[in-house]
Design a protein around this nucleic acid. Structure first.
Lengths: 199, 199, 199, 199
DNA sequence: CATGAATGAGAATTCATTCAT
DNA sequence: TATGAATGAATTCTCATTCAT
C-alpha cells in the first residue's frame, strides 16, 4: 500500500536502525523513531503500513544490501578458497564498519516473531544459498570434502560468523576484521579435511 | 528479594517454559503463565520480583541444568576427542529431547534485553568456559592446533551448534542427534587441522 | 469472555448511559465513562471485551428491560383496545420518565453501525414481534381491519411512537405521557377503520 | 466562508453521498470522498469549511431537493385526500428510486450530532411544515378530524413513512412504492376517523 | 501465604485539516 | 485554484504490578 519514496522513507528507515541500535527493539516506539527521523508520528504511516512492516523493510533493505554487496564481491573471484576468504572477511569487515547494522539485523531483529521471521527469512535464505553455492562449488572441484552435508557446512560457516559478531557486539574488545584470517583457516580446515586422514 | 521455595516456584517456572514455548515470549503474559501453573496472578510475585527476574530464573534453572549435565557427562571422559564428541552429541541430543528448552532458552530468551542479557550471560559464560577448557586441554596435549585462538574456536563450536539447533527449531525436518557425527567431524577437522599442511 | 458481575458492571453500564445521554455517542470516550463510573480505564475491559460490546450491552440491558416491562404490563390485559392503549401509554410514559434511556437507546444507539445494528436488532425485533402479535390478535377477533398488512401496521405504530419520542427528546415542550390518549385514538382509527366506509 | 461553485462542488457532494451510502458515515473519510470525486483532499476544503459542513450541505442539497420535488408535486393537486396520497406515494417512490439518498439522508445522517442536528433540522422542518399545512387544510375543509393535534398527526405521518423506509433500507424485500396504497389508507383512516363513532 | 480484581501508564494507529508548491 | 504530503491530537486497548481481603 504505502508508497516508498526517497528522502522521508530513507530517513525513517535510517532513524529506525539508529534508534533500535541504541534502545533495543522493545524500547523503540514509533514516536521515538519519528522524532529521530524529524517527522511527525503520522508521517511514518504514509510510508509503512505498520510498525511490523517497517521492521521488515529495515531488515530487507539493510541486510539485503549487506548480502548483495558480499555476493558481488565474491562474484569477482574464481578461486574457491579465495571466495571463502572473501566471505569471511567481508562479513566481519562490513559489520565492524556498521555497528548499527550488526546490532539491528543480527541481534535485535533475529527475534522469533512469526511475522517478522517469515519476512526476514527470505533475505537470510538468500545469504544461505550464497554460502551453500560456494560449498557445492568447492565440492565439485574436489577442493572441499565431498562427503560434507552442505546444509550442515553452511550452518557451521554462518553460525560461526554470527556467534563471533554477536560476541563482538556485546563485548567490543577486539577488532572483528582482524579475526578474519584465523576464522578463515578454521573453516577451511573443516571444509577441506578428509576425516583426519592426515594424522 | 522473593523467596524461592519448592512446589509453586517450580510449577511457575515450568509453566513459563511451556507457555513461552507455545506462545512465544511476546505473547506470554503473567496471567497465562499463572493459569498454566495453577496459581493466582499475584502469587507469581511472591516468588519473583518481576517478569524479568522470572525469565532470568527460567534461563538459569533450565539452561543451567542443561549445561551442568553436559559438564558432568564430559567429566567422565578423559580423551579429548571423545570429550568433543560427547559435547556435540549431548548438546544436540538433549535439545532434541527437550524442544521447549531449545525454543525458550536458545530462541525466545536469546533476546538482547540488557537486563536479561546480563543475567543470562552468567550461565552462558559457564558453558563457554567449559568449551574453552576443552580446547585448552586439547592444545596442551598437542591434539588440537596450538595456534588456535581458544575464544575463536569456542565461538565456532558454540556458534555451529547453536545455528544447527535454531534451524531445527524452525524447521524440524531432520533429527538433531543424528547429525552429531558429521558435526563432530567438521569441528574436529577444524580444531586439529594444521593450516592445511597435509595437502 | 468478560465476566459480568454486580456492582462494577452495573456502575459502568449506568455511567455509559449517563455519559452518552449528555455527550452523545461520538463524544463518549471510554475514559469518560470509566471516570463517571469511578473506575480505572482498564477496569472497563474486565467487564466488556470492547467498547462496541459495551454498547450492545447498554442497549440490551436497558432497552431489553424497557420492552419486557411493556410486555408484562400488556400481558395482564385481555382486551385488544386496552392493550394498544397500554402499549402507547407505557412506551411514552416510560421514556418520559427515563430521558437518558430515550436518548441513548432510541437516538444515540440507533446508528447504522453494522455490528451494533445486528445486536440491537435482536432486541428491537422482540418489540416488533410484541406489536405484531397484538395486531394479529386484534385481527383475529375482528376488531382490527383484517386486510391490514401486519408489518406495515407495526411500522406505523412503532414509527409514530418513535417519531414522537425523538421530537420530544430534541424539543421537550410537552409532556410525552399526556399525548398518549390522542396517539392512541389516531392509531386505533387507523387499525379499526374499514377503508373509509363511514364517510 | 467557502465559495460554493459548480462542477467540483457538485462532484464532491455527489461523491460524498455515494461513498457514505456504500461505506457508512463512520467509514467515509475525506480522502475517500475526494478520491471518488476525482479531486485532491485539500480541494475539498476550498469548497467546504469542514467535514461537518459538507455533511450539512449533503443533507440540505439532497434532502432539500427531495422535499421541494414533493412540495411541487403536491401543489398541483387541490383535493386533500389526493394530496395525502401523493405525499405518501412520492415519499416512498422517490426514496425507492434513490437508494443512496434514502441511506444517507434518512439513516446515516440522522445521527444526533448537535451540530448536524441543527442544520438538518432546518430542512426537515420545511418538510414538517408541508405536512402540517396539509393537515390544517384537511381540517379546515372538515375532511380531517378537526380535533387532531396537527403536530401529533404530522409525527404519525412522518414517523410511519420514515420507519417504513428504514425497514426497507435494511431489508429490501418488498417494493417501497407498492406499499403506498396501503399506507395511504392506514393514514387516511387515522386522520379522518372521528373517534370510532362510526362503529 | 494466596488471591484476583483493580489499576493506569503506555503505545500503535487514524484522519480531519493545513500549507508550501 | 488545485494539490497531496505532512501533521499531531486523540483514542482504544494491553498487561505488569499491586494490595485489600
Amino acid at each position: 500500500m504505502a508508497k516508498k519514496k526517497g528522502e522521508k522513507y530513507d530517513a525513517i528507515l535510517g532513524a529506525a536502525v539508529k534508534v533500535i541500535a541504541v534502545n533495543g527493539y522493545g524500547n523503540s516506539q514509533i514516536s521515538k523513531i519519528a522524532k529521530e527521523a524529524g517527522v511527525a508520528d503520522g508521517t511514518v504511516y504514509l510510508y509503512f503500513d505498520s510498525k511490523e512492516e517497517m521492521m521488515v523493510d529495515v531488515f530487507n533493505e539493510f541486510l539485503g544490501g549487506f548480502i548483495e554487496e558480499i555476493r558481488h564481491e565474491m562474484s569477482e573471484i574464481t578461486n574457491t578458497a579465495d571466495k571463502l576468504k572473501k566471505l569471511v572477511e567481508a562479513h566481519l569487515t562490513k559489520l565492524e564498519n556498521d555497528h548499527d547494522l550488526a546490532i539491528v539485523c543480527l541481534v535485535e531483529l533475529r527475534r522469533p516473531d512469526p511475522q517478522l521471521r517469515q519476512a526476514t527469512g527470505d533475505v537470510l535464505r538468500r545469504y544461505f544459498h550464497l554460502i551453500e553455492d560456494l560449498i557445492e562449488e568447492g565440492q565439485a572441484s574436489g577442493f572441499f570434502n565431498p562427503e560434507l552435508n552442505k546444509y550442515l557446512a553452511r550452518q557451521m560457516i554462518f553460525g560461526t560468523l554470527d556467534e563471533i559478531v554477536i560476541s563482538w557486539v556485546f563485548n567490543r574488545r577486539h577488532s572483528l576484521a582482524a579475526q578474519a584470517p584465523q576464522v578463515y583457516k578454521m573453516l577451511l580446515n573443516s571444509l577441506t579435511g578428509h576425516s583426519r586422514q592426515c594424522s
